[in-house]
Design a binder for these strands. Sequence first.
DNA 1: TATTGTTATACTCTATAACTATA
DNA 2: TATAGTTATAGAGTATAACAATA
Lengths: 169, 169
Amino acid sequence: MAEQAQYEELIRQFSAFGAVKRELGRLLPSDCSSGSATVLTILTRHGDMRMSKLAELLAVDMSVTSRQVAHIVDRGWIERSPDPADKRSRILRLTPAGREQMDELSRRTTRMLAERLSDWSDDEITELTRLMARLRASFDDCRSAPAGPPTEPALEQSTRTPATPAITK
Amino acid sequence: MAEQAQYEELIRQFSAFGAVKRELGRLLPSDCSSGSATVLTILTRHGDMRMSKLAELLAVDMSVTSRQVAHIVDRGWIERSPDPADKRSRILRLTPAGREQMDELSRRTTRMLAERLSDWSDDEITELTRLMARLRASFDDCRSAPAGPPTEPALEQSTRTPATPAITK
DNA sequence: TATTGTTATACTCTATAACTATA
DNA sequence: TATAGTTATAGAGTATAACAATA
């Protein structure tokens, strides 16, 4: 358990991280925004998945996911095929062009990181990667179990609008 | 010097960090956006400064800074006084209400971090803070010396639109 | 002529709400 | 009735460009 001052300092670094993200965003190709890059990264990493799964991994509302995916489909980087098991669902899959785009993104970001972090040791890079992964995991855990009793664990909180369950007047 | 795979993994964690930032953003008061919070944080941390300095610390265009600051001034959290040394400039200063708002933000974010990171050790939190600070520094360094010859170091690259230096036709 | 800051415009990211089609 | 996904609308963040006042 840490002290308040430590948390405050950590939050300051979180705020400052925006500058790093913007800097990285500036080297993206003009037809591939930061949001598109994130989607391609996730699909490369986790393989084919449904919209809802992608929305969960992105931790954004599914409406956001839907628009971003539509954008990327337009560019031919992913395809949406119908899910034979559930006709409401669609399966997302990276196309060969999508893999090429991902490779290009990797080249660019890797080159920038190699420049910027040229004086970092292997261990430091590995440690930062590990801690950021753990950070994300700590936030994910609490999202699926936000403070509820342990008797009701798998509530599977969906990242979407309440859907207005027929309270019409 | 690290390998490509390490950089790629680090980039993945950078992408995923967006989810953490959104989660933290959700607990902000409705009248204080994430951008406002960042400005208040920087002013709390670094003290009074000019617009241009703030833009540099935020690593965004000054036009962005100008609008964000105007928003925060409207809420009474900072004041813009004229700079006696240069009538074009304005000095930004946190008001007492701004400090109170900052305290409230600290309380909220600290509480959330204490929840989410309850199983982290002090050392891990300190280490993550340190590495993120170093990350930011590594990016800052390269921004003021982007690849130019060492004979021309203090180019002081300003974060703003080129200003169209009278190339009018 | 160059710099500091502002405003106008446009695009991306995000959430909420309402809708369609399946289940 | 509930769920998967879409679309419409609105608000924040950002960049570019043009502008005003001052240096």
